[in-house]
Design a binder for these strands. Structure first.
Lengths: 166, 166
DNA sequence: CTCATATAGTACGGAAATCATAATATATGG
DNA sequence: CCATATATTATGATTTCCGTACTATATGAG
């Protein structure tokens, strides 16, 4: 749907290229800035960056087992045990024995402290809402599509790197 | 253009709201995925996540002093010393005494190992190029603008959090 | 069923990273 | 020249990371 006629006379390859490079650079900046925001939020909650990352994945992808989470977060299983210990001690998660396979554990985010997190992200959420108000619904759809595709590009690229040993 | 049941034909509040929430969720996913990609890249280069972050900032924002970099990366000055030691040992950066103020140090990224990094990011760069080919120049400008504004939103939100002590 | 093997999660311990504090070197203003 | 402020690094206590080994459970073969 965002395919437009190419090879047109009005089409300036140099302009497209510049715009593309702008986007890639902007994505780099955005990644760093969001990492920094999370670092601040984590600091307020006495959580390491990686702890907050795990919490984010858990909150988003529902209950997970340690092995699944470790794989998704690119962490050593033993490292994850330490992270889960911290999160459990802080009252962020619970570890329950799974019903089917009794070796495995189901990690669940506790809702209790959700408000704290939300309050800390509130400035960013408000700023984003203000920002998004300036776009038409069509533009919003373009942006959402771009973000989803970029995430997918990131996923396949990450897997490609993880697959090869050098 | 489709009419909506509630009021304004041009602006459907429900559709906009959904699109906005989609974007915020997509941004969360994208952040995690890019962090994961960097984790993989860092792993190949024997660099911690935070080391690669610092390198990225340095490569992007030119030579910096340790104090400036520490502030920009949200790190304790002493922590940064350790990071710089690792980066220097690995041949990623040099520390030169600044000309003006002889207390301060100028950290510069060495170009030598840039190729390695580029090669590792190549899958992502190619995927992004393919992805961007599907957009018109106008759409690219919309996306670039959105990314820049989001980064700015992240910056002000981060500063807001850093400013208050609770 | 019994045994071998595989898998999930964690305990343990050495190596490394983090960060508060102190120390050093230089700058700046009176 | 002196007092104070600032940039960076050294030191050391604490925490984190992660390779290895261990326990518990699952699965498959005979």
């Amino acid at each position: 749907m965002e395919q437009t006629s190419s090879g047109d006379a009005r089409h300036d390859p140099r302009g497209r290229r510049r715009a593309g490079n702008d986007i890639k650079a902007a994505l780099r900046d955005l990644r760093i800035q969001l990492a920094l925001l999370n670092h601040q939020v984590g600091g307020k909650l006495a959580l390491k960056d990686v702890d907050l990352d795990c919490l984010d994945v858990l909150a988003r992808s529902g209950p997970l087992t340690p092995s699944t989470l470790a794989r998704q977060a690119g962490l050593h299983p033993a490292t994850l045990t330490g992270i889960l210990d911290r999160l459990e001690r802080g009252g962020w998660i619970t570890r329950d024995r799974a019903r089917g396979d009794r070796r495995s554990i189901s990690i669940r985010v506790l809702p209790d402290r959700g408000v704290e997190v939300f309050r800390l992200y509130q400035p960013m959420i408000s700023a984003m809402d203000d920002l998004l108000d300036g776009y038409s619904e069509e533009e919003l759809d373009v942006i959402a599509g771009f973000l989803r595709r970029s995430t997918e590009a990131g996923r396949t690229s990450t897997e490609k790197l993880a697959g090869q040993d050098s």
